[in-house]
Design a binder for these strands. Sequence first.
DNA 1: TGGGTCATGTAACCTGTTACATGATTAG
DNA 2: CTAATCATGTAACAGGTTACATGACCCA
Lengths: 183, 183
Amino acid sequence: MSLKHGLLGFLNYGSMTGYELDKAFKESLDLFWMAQTSQIYRELNSMEKLGWLTSERILQEDKPNKKLYTLTKQGRDELKSWLGKSNNNEGIYVKNGFLMKIFFSGERSTDENIKALKKYKYNCEKALERLGKTGSSIDHYKNQILDKDKAFYWGIAAEYGYYYYMTSIKWADEIIKRLEDIK
Amino acid sequence: MSLKHGLLGFLNYGSMTGYELDKAFKESLDLFWMAQTSQIYRELNSMEKLGWLTSERILQEDKPNKKLYTLTKQGRDELKSWLGKSNNNEGIYVKNGFLMKIFFSGERSTDENIKALKKYKYNCEKALERLGKTGSSIDHYKNQILDKDKAFYWGIAAEYGYYYYMTSIKWADEIIKRLEDIK
DNA sequence: TGGGTCATGTAACCTGTTACATGATTAG
DNA sequence: CTAATCATGTAACAGGTTACATGACCCA
């Protein structure tokens, strides 16, 4: 139950349309929680049924009509409750398909594995670049939000991203070197 | 489509029952891909329908009967094909609910956030401990498998775990310090 | 005239989670 | 006597992915 909570988090800053939420997600949270556009629309629907938000249809002339979502008290309560409760495997059980592949890479040749690790390293480098962009889009949002303290935590999450990708690159380098030595 | 591939990976080392696969998963891959027992049984069923494996019922007297699964050629091909293809976001888009929470933690008090980060740090330390155990269970499996090169990659995946948790702890320490300073 | 932005979705399918059910044997 | 190990699952629900559909407006 996490995409719903991410959406609650954004809507707590102010009313938004599905389209805007989709963009906000892709510009910031995407690195920790990638969401499909279609899923966002579906979840908004189901959240409305749950009473977590209300919607208002806004007619436009030059552009397509849109639907503006607003948090209800229940929605705000749900957000608070999610933020409030911690469980014992937070940040621990993270599904990582790449690592699972590595686990079984004895089935591949050393050359293939070196290639795969180099690709992975490249992907991490690209992700770091995108983090830079996320940084500037965070700055952009910061200026729109009244309560600037809130955006402080956006920076912290982005910083985790730096640590994460830097470490992943270091690991990949180390393993590549080792594989090239035994070749 | 990843639990299926994890199961294929194990079955490639030799025929196993659902119960044994469940244990193997929990003793090794669990840190990168936590799987429910019930899901393992269901997936095995669906994999058999896909023709990736065959099953043989084994009757026992003292213990409950069991079902031994064996890879088919199709199953082995599927494993190879999964290992062979890389995509552009491997290891990049990893869903992390904890980070999403951090992202919205402006809604919580600084004290609550310090508490949550300390809990997170503690969880990471526990995970590191478990990695030690995983290490020994990897050693255990190593001795059962003929082709010891395969187990080399198990160690590499575990090593990623070390890097990962060590970095997470470092990050948490840094943020806790920062939060305590501004308090 | 072709691609980007704005804006919303549906349908089918696949994957993951939670709760529950059963029951014998064995070791401390 | 009680907890762990062995061994298998079902049912219901929740969440995520992929593919597809529509259509206007604007800029180069």
